[in-house]
Nucleic acid binder design. Structure first.
Length: 232
DNA sequence: AGCATGATTTGCT
DNA sequence: GCAAATCATGCTC
């Protein structure tokens, strides 16, 4: 995965994105998310994603219908849905399914493989794994923000490659930060990657040695309450 | 290692 | 106002 120019990377076809969201989520693991920064590729291998599917999904931004904020999700597949949250974080999603049906895959973590000097200059952390192991971290590292909202992943500075280094084992769990007590297991990650996000995984998952073997890193622990600022 | 907090947008109540 | 698909920091044990 050492290529000189972003031009040498092939974008995924439009048909790739016009499929069931869960299928796409799994198929995105191991591919490379790349930002073309004036001819230089900055990005990395996708190792963690979450699916948000339709107005019936209570955790999906579209669950209460179309608004100015979420309208990109209602548009054609293969575009970036980028939104701002928690006061200072941008989240990158890939729009899926047919036009008119709001669904997307949130990119939650990368292995920072390209343009690491640029990434490091934007991230004030020491260890490599902390550079892009969270949805807000990776947008900061890659310089992705609201200007990229609606960008076509086939004809803008943003790209996801056909090239894939598929994970050997895919872990599944409930989605992070989704407050419903019984959330759908729509978070997927490369079990062997050290760069999977560890945010709020409770007391059992150590930040130094992420759970790399089996499925859910949070077995039986409801992902409830306590999102955002700690209340009380 | 665990918990609280500040950053301060968007959209619903 | 409040909660949300969050993160870095700082305090406490």
């Amino acid at each position: 995965m050492a290529k000189a120019s972003p031009r040498s990377f092939q974008p995924l076809s439009r048909d790739f994105y016009q499929r069931p969201t869960l299928e796409i989520a799994l198929d995105l693991l191991g591919r490379y998310l790349i930002v073309d920064e004036g001819g230089k590729p900055v990005g990395g291998r996708i190792v963690e994603v979450e699916a948000y599917i339709g107005e019936d999904d209570p955790a999906c931004h579209a669950h209460l219908g179309r608004t100015r904020r979420n309208e990109v999700m209602y548009g054609p597949p293969g575009r970036a849905y980028v939104y701002f949250t928690y006061g200072n974080h941008w989240m990158l999603n890939v729009v899926t399914e047919r036009e008119g049906f709001p669904a997307a895959v949130l990119i939650r973590a990368l292995e920072p493989s390209l343009g690491q000097e640029t990434i490091r200059s934007r991230r004030n952390v020491k260890s490599e794994r902390d550079l892009t192991n969270g949805p807000g971290k990776l947008t900061a590292a890659l310089g992705i923000n609201g200007h990229d909202n609606g960008a076509d992943l086939r004809s803008s500075r943003l790209l996801i490659t056909r090239e894939i280094e598929a994970p050997k084992e895919i872990g599944k769990s409930g989605r992070v930060g989704v407050s419903a007590g019984s959330d759908l297991p729509w978070r997927f990650f490369d079990s062997a990657s050290p760069c999977v996000s560890l945010y709020r995984l409770g007391t059992r998952a150590s930040r130094r040695t992420p759970r790399t073997t089996q499925n859910s890193p949070v077995p039986g622990v409801p992902l409830k309450g306590r999102t955002g600022r700690g209340r009380k």
